[in-house]
C-alpha cells in the first residue's frame, strides 16, 4: 500500500490554479522531497493531503484511506511537523506531549510511558519539566518532531523542518530523520535547502505553478536535466566584467551559460577547454564544481524572485 498517493489534483482559490493536475505517490519507507519556489503549491498539497483543504478535483489516498472523506481516520496514522512552531507555550515539554497524545485518543498512562523515550530521541532527556520559552529554536523543532511521533505514525510530514536552524541543529535533525527512516517510517519532506533534499531524499519532485516538473532520485534528476559540471565565472572588479565575457566568449566553451548579476554560470559536459581558456585569462576568477540539485532547481524554475 502506498502511504500517500495523489492523482490529478486541482485547486484554485479564485485566481490562477494553485494546483494544476498534480500527481505523485510515496513508496513505503522512503523519504520523498517536495521542492518548489514559494507559491509552487507545496503547502496547499500538504493541506489537501490532510483533508484541511478540499481540492477542486483529483484523488487523494492517505494511509490507504480516501481524503477528504476519511481524513480524520487517516490523520490518526500520520505525524506532522509544521512549518511554524505551534507548541503550547503554557505547558512544559512533557505536558505538550501528553496533551497532544489526548487528541489522538491515547490514554494519559500510555503517553506518559512513552515520554522518556520520545524526549531521549529528541535530545531533550532531563528537560521534561522545562518551559517552552526556555528552549532554543533547535530544541523546539526537535520537540515538535517528538510530538509528531506521539501516535507512533508510519508516515511523517515535515514542512521545512530545518528553516532558521544553525548548522549543528540542522545536522541533529537530519540524523534523527535518518533514524526514523531506518525504522521503516515514510517521510514527506518539503524544503528550500537543496543540500538537505540531496542528502535525505530517496526521491524528490520539483513543483512549479502547481505542476510536477521533475521527479526521481536526486542523481537521476540532476542527470536528466542538467550538464554534469558547472564553472562559475566572476569578474575581478575594475579589471574584467564576467557579463561581457559571457556575452562575447563563453558560448564556444559551454553548452549553456546563465548570467546572474556579475556571475556567469557555465554548464559543461567537457570542462577542460573552458578551464584552459580561463587559466590564461587575467581578471576572471572561477569555481569548478559538479552540478547539483540547486542548478537543476534554478534551471527549471528560473532565477526570478517568487514572493
Amino acid at each position: 500500500m502506498e502511504p500517500l498517493s495523489i492523482r490529478g489534483l486541482h485547486k484554485s482559490f479564485g485566481g490562477p490554479a494553485v494546483l494544476a493536475g498534480l500527481t505523485f505517490a510515496l513508496r513505503p519507507g522512503e523519504c520523498y522531497g517536495l521542492l518548489g519556489p514559494n507559491g509552487a503549491g507545496k503547502t496547499t498539497t500538504l493541506r489537501c493531503a490532510l483533508g484541511l483543504t478540499r481540492p477542486d478535483g483529483g484523488e487523494i489516498r492517505l494511509a490507504g484511506l480516501p481524503v477528504p472523506e476519511r481524513a480524520r481516520e487517516a490523520r490518526a496514522r500520520v505525524g506532522i511537523v509544521p512549518q511554524m512552531d505551534n507548541l503550547d507555550p503554557d505547558f512544559t515539554v512533557a505536558e505538550n506531549l501528553l496533551v497532544y497524545g489526548r487528541y489522538f485518543g491515547l490514554a494519559d498512562r500510555a503517553v506518559r510511558a512513552r515520554i522518556p523515550q520520545l524526549l531521549d530521541f529528541a535530545g531533550l532527556a532531563g528537560r521534561a519539566e522545562a518551559k517552552i520559552s526556555t528552549l532554543s529554536g533547535g530544541m523546539k523543532r526537535r520537540l515538535t518532531l517528538a510530538r509528531a511521533l506521539v501516535n507512533d505514525p508510519d508516515l511523517l510530514f515535515l514542512d521545512e523542518p530545518t528553516t532558521g536552524l544553525d548548522p549543528q541543529a540542522r545536522h541533529l535533525i537530519w540524523e534523527r530523520l535518518k533514524q526514523l527512516l531506518a525504522q521503516g517510517k515514510t517521510v514527506l519532506l518539503t524544503t528550500h535547502f537543496m543540500d538537505e533534499a540531496e542528502r535525505l531524499c530517496h526521491r524528490l519532485a520539483i513543483l512549479d505553478r502547481g505542476r510536477l516538473i521533475a521527479e526521481g532520485s536526486p542523481r537521476e534528476v540532476i542527470a536528466a536535466h542538467i550538464e554534469p559540471e558547472v564553472i562559475e565565472v566572476y569578474g575581478e572588479p575594475g579589471e574584467m566584467s564576467a557579463a561581457a565575457w559571457a556575452r562575447d566568449e563563453a558560448a564556444q566553451f559551454a553548452t549553456r551559460v546563465e548570467l546572474a548579476g556579475e556571475t556567469a554560470f557555465c554548464y559543461v559536459t567537457e570542462s577542460r577547454p573552458l578551464l584552459r581558456h580561463l587559466a590564461d585569462r587575467r581578471g576572471l576568477r572561477y569555481l569548478h564544481r559538479p552540478a547539483n540539485l540547486e542548478d537543476v532547481f534554478l534551471k527549471l524554475t528560473g532565477r526570478d524572485l517568487r514572493d
Binding site: 490532510l50 484541511l52 480524520r72 481516520e73 490523520r75 490518526a76 506532522i80 509544521p82 511554524m84 505551534n86 507548541l87 503550547d88 497532544y100 487528541y103 489522538f104 485518543g105 501516535n151
Partner: peptide, 9 residues
C-alpha cells in the same frame, strides 16, 4: 493549527 493536524475536526 496543531490540533487540526490530529484526528480532531
Amino acid at each position: 493549527d496543531a490540533i487540526l493536524n490530529t484526528p480532531l475536526s
